[in-house]
Simulated scan of single mutants.
Amino acid sequence: MASGRFTTSAARPKSANTCPGCVPGQAIWGFGLTEPTAGSDAGGSKTTAMRDGSHWVINGSKIFITNAASEMTLGVTVQAVTGSRPNGKPEYTCFIVENGTRGFKAVPMKKKMMWRASNTAELYFDDVRVPAENILGRPGDGFHQMLKTLDGGRLSIAAMGLGGAQGAYDAALSYARKREQFGQPISKFQAVAFKLADSAMEIECGRNLLYKACWLRDQKRSFEKEAAMAKLYCSELMGRVANHAVQIHGGYGLMKEYNVERFYRDQKLLDIGEGTSEVQRIVISRYIGC
């Protein structure tokens, strides 16, 4: 391996989720798919890898890559174009690139609207040479590997949306019970009570949808459609509930002293990460036969 940290094939990470130290939380790993001109169109990647003897030479860039430029980051798994298939479409292959490899640079991205504690990076590959053994799986498997990873990642985004919705709801309910206007808690006013009732109902619906998708995966059954549904519903659910929570807080909901302001900002990433809401609707429509 390029930097010598992974000295045997057994120790080398088989995926971004099984790198040495990642499971116990001692290290993290980047998932290099998105590019400046290839976001929702994951098949539009321009990063290339050319075979040169016993090595591959990678050139290109990635953007909005989570966990890729932290002090704990060991490296990234990167998708690159490695040729063309018989039908003329690009062939994609995933490579393991360790930090410290010559020509590889990870630059942290700052000034984000939300998730400021989450490490996000731009990646640059300038004639980055990696051994042929650094291919993840087999040549040409890259696109399938990335899409499969996204299917699982959608469950994580859905869980974030569900948890965020629950947090915003809990904060709004607590505030509404304590805040008094016109001589009574604002939770007694129908306009506020109905927002809370709708939120409670939708959170329960989202929880059941997500749990079903996770159960299907645990049972090793097809879960891709349900994962897309859960991701779409729970991410947008948090937006609706956070919006209600800010409204219920009134002017205080706009102040950083109250958590609902952060819930409101943090939610927006969930509509975009692991495939936008629009992409999820495309995925679902294909699974139902449209």
Rank of each mutant, 00 (worst) to 15 (best):
H249Q: 09
G53Y: 12
I288C: 08
L232E: 04
F125Y: 03
K212A: 11
L136R: 04
F104W: 02
R262E: 11
R265L: 11
F223K: 00
T47P: 03
G152Y: 00
A42Q: 10
N243I: 08
L209W: 00
T82Y: 10
R179C: 12
Q184N: 12
A27P: 01
A158S: 00
L270I: 00
N99A: 02
V97L: 08
A172R: 09
Y252D: 11
L123H: 00
V81G: 04
E261L: 11
T149I: 12
E226C: 06
R262T: 04
M1D: 02
N119A: 12
M255S: 14
G75Q: 03
V57A: 00
G32Q: 05
I248K: 09
D41V: 12
V78N: 00
Q181H: 13
Q267P: 06
A228I: 01
S15Q: 08
V78Q: 05
N119S: 05
V130I: 10
M255I: 14
V76K: 01
A213Q: 05
A197K: 15
R265A: 06
T7R: 07
E71A: 15
K148T: 15
A106K: 00
E274H: 09
S277E: 03
A16P: 07
E202A: 13
R179K: 15
V260L: 07
R217L: 10
Q26D: 13
E226P: 00
R85W: 10
A49K: 01
C22L: 15
P86C: 02
Q26W: 04
H144W: 15
M146I: 15
L269I: 15
Y233R: 09
G137V: 10
P185D: 04
C19Y: 01
T120Y: 09
P90E: 06
C22M: 14
K231W: 08
F189R: 05
I28F: 01
M113T: 12
M201P: 13
A172T: 08
I157G: 08
G153E: 01
Y124F: 14
V76D: 04
I203G: 00
N99C: 04
F95V: 03
A242D: 07
F189M: 02
M72F: 01
G152D: 01
W115R: 11
G44Y: 06
G275V: 08
V241I: 11
R51N: 11
E98K: 04
W56G: 01
N59P: 06
E204L: 15
S61M: 09
W215V: 14
L270R: 06
L210P: 03
A49H: 02
M238I: 02
L136F: 13
A230M: 09
K231L: 10
A242C: 08
R138C: 07
A27L: 11
W115T: 07
T47C: 04
K105F: 00
